[in-house]
């Protein structure tokens, strides 16, 4: 029941973030939705994800506000806003109607399929020695996951440094 309330709260925050005209308040509404997600992770018994989501949320807000701190421009509304709105609604309707058929295959809320993870839960502690089953999965049973994650993050860092590079060497002379 609390999950319903938190989801409705997140939907309201997301609507506000999508519709307000001020960029700073839009970013703050995005972070409010992220804090709601953090609370939902806590109620759904995922404390690892709650810590990570809270921390990542703060760094989102700092980077985005630093990026837009003096570039607030008014929202322009000329041209085909009716066409854009109608096409967005059409995409949403198509997506929801496909999702209605897909939701019948998903297991009922509260009774997960534990076909793979029964093995991890029962023998995770004595095979790896780690009491935290989630970090036992990411760092021992499925280590390629952590390897690819580190590779993606490192590539993103190098990409940002390449995009924001100051000048090329040819321009010096």
């Amino acid at each position: 029941m609390e999950i319903h309330l938190i989801l409705i709260f997140m939907i309201c925050a997301a609507l506000f973030a999508a519709e307000t005209k001020d960029l700073i308040s839009s970013l703050i509404a995005l972070s409010v939705a992220g804090l709601g997600l953090c609370l939902a992770f806590l109620i759904l018994k995922a404390p690892n994800l709650a810590i990570t989501q809270l921390v990542v949320e703060i760094i989102y807000v700092i980077i985005l506000i630093r990026a837009t701190i003096d570039k607030d421009l008014p929202l322009v509304r000329d041209g085909r806003w009716l066409f854009n709105t109608v096409s967005a609604m059409l995409f949403a309707i198509v997506f929801l109607s496909f999702a209605y058929f897909a939701l019948k295959e998903i297991p009922v809320f509260g009774q997960p399929l534990m076909r793979v993870s029964n093995e991890y839960v029962t023998s995770g502690l004595e095979k790896t020695g780690s009491a935290n089953i989630v970090s036992a999965i990411t760092l021992n049973f499925r280590s390629f996951d952590a390897l690819a994650e580190a590779a993606v993050l490192f590539t993103a860092i190098i990409g940002v440094l390449a995009i924001t590079r100051k000048t090329g060497k040819i321009d010096e002379k």
Binding site: L44, K45, A46, N48, L49, T52, P112, L113, M114, V116, S117, Y120, V121, I133, V134, I137, T138, R142, D145, A146, A148, E149
Partner: peptide
């Protein structure tokens, strides 16, 4: 326990 496998995926 709740299912730990989606939590590991979502962490990634």
């Amino acid at each position: 326990m709740v299912d730990p496998l989606p939590q590991a995926m979502v962490l990634t």
